[in-house]
Amino acid sequence: MADATPATPSHHRILGAALVSHLPGARRSPLALEQAPNGLFLLWLAYMGLLAFGALLLWRAGAWHRLVAADPTGLTVIIVLLFTGCSLWAGRRAWTLGLQRQQLDGLLARPGLVSPNKEHWSAEYMHGCAQPGADQNTWMQILGERAHGPHEMAWWLNGIQLKLGLLGKVIGFSILALQLGQMESFDASQSAQLLKNLTGGLGIALLTTVTGLTGNILLGLQLMRLDRFADALVADTLAATPPATQALAGAPHGDRPPGP
């Protein structure tokens, strides 16, 4: 009996897609606002406006000052700066994906006007597949890399926020443990100072963890919409590729049809 074929990355992706497709709302298409010109960027802009308004309210309440003063490690400031930088990149990426969507819509409205333009991902894919002897799988990988490749670093930085929060938690509890280890005897007259020192370590642990979790969730929402929009862009590009082009790209020996 022949051995079972080992699982490949393609099989894992197919299995993952099958599992995700059964989640609630997983098959929902991009929002109607996202389909409008620069709609994804406008949606990101509205989202950042809400976050900026919330940050302004926290600043007026003095929460930012207390947050910085309560964390001598500076990890909360690093997390906030990292979140701000990644969010600005997400806005720039939303603008880029929106332009690619407009170019694809224009290409669908005028079929046949396909030029090998690297700035136009869909046109580059269609033109590449139309070449004699072209490998459609290779061009599909190029299209997927252009649409999703830069998102991998953003997701990695999003995870770094959470790790920095956990690092602050470890530092805070380490400070708390050191304070407890330095106690030789309990003196009621020093209880106020002791509680202050213990609360400082506990505050570092909690504040950095909360900041890391909040930044991870808020940035993850932006990256999820970017991934979903990029998925729709790739899917529409593949669906718009003429069947003759797909058959030509799938020929193993140039323009010769597959045979024995």
Rank of each mutant, 00 (worst) to 15 (best):
F173C: 05
G62T: 07
R92P: 02
S21Q: 07
D105S: 15
Q136S: 10
P260V: 04
T8E: 14
G16V: 02
R66V: 05
L40H: 01
Q222P: 03
D227A: 10
T237R: 00
K163W: 01
P258F: 10
L180Q: 08
G133E: 10
A18F: 01
L157I: 13
L223R: 00
L221M: 10
G159F: 03
S185T: 15
L97I: 03
R110Y: 10
P111W: 09
G181P: 01
N216T: 13
R28S: 11
A177K: 00
G54E: 13
S122T: 12
R256Q: 15
L75T: 08
W95M: 06
G254H: 11
A7N: 14
L213N: 13
D187H: 14
D105E: 13
S185Q: 13
A17E: 14
L218Q: 15
D135M: 06
N158I: 00
A249W: 01
I79G: 03
G259W: 04
P257H: 14
T245M: 12
P258K: 03
G200N: 09
S10R: 15
K163M: 06
M126L: 15
A205N: 03
S87I: 02
L113R: 14
S87W: 04
T76M: 02
A154T: 11
Q246P: 09
L167W: 04
H151D: 00
A7Y: 09
G159L: 03
L58V: 07
R60Q: 15
G25F: 11
D71H: 04
L15E: 14
L166N: 07
M48G: 11
A109Q: 15
E34G: 05
E119Y: 01
L238M: 06
H127G: 06
P6A: 13
T138I: 15
Q141L: 05
R92F: 05
P6H: 12
L104V: 04
I171T: 15
F41H: 06
F229H: 03
L104N: 08
L23S: 09
G168V: 02
A69Y: 04
A232S: 14
F41C: 04
T214A: 12
P252H: 07
L248F: 05
F173R: 01
L97Q: 02
A7I: 12
S189C: 07
L33I: 11
A134G: 08
L45C: 13
Q193S: 15
A205T: 11
G49W: 01
C86F: 01
L43R: 01
V20K: 05
V68A: 15
A240G: 07
V210K: 01
T138D: 05
D3Y: 02
F173A: 03
G181F: 11
R92M: 05
A61V: 03
A69R: 10
L143Y: 00
D187L: 09
A36D: 08
R228S: 08
G54L: 09
T214W: 02
K118S: 13
T211A: 10
A177W: 03
L51N: 06
G98E: 00
H127I: 02
D227Q: 11
R13M: 04
K169S: 12
G49R: 03
G149Y: 07
A46F: 09
R93I: 00
A239G: 00
W64S: 08
M153K: 09
H253E: 09
P258C: 05
W155Y: 09
I142C: 03
P72L: 04
A130K: 12
A46R: 06
Q246H: 12
G254S: 13
H151K: 01
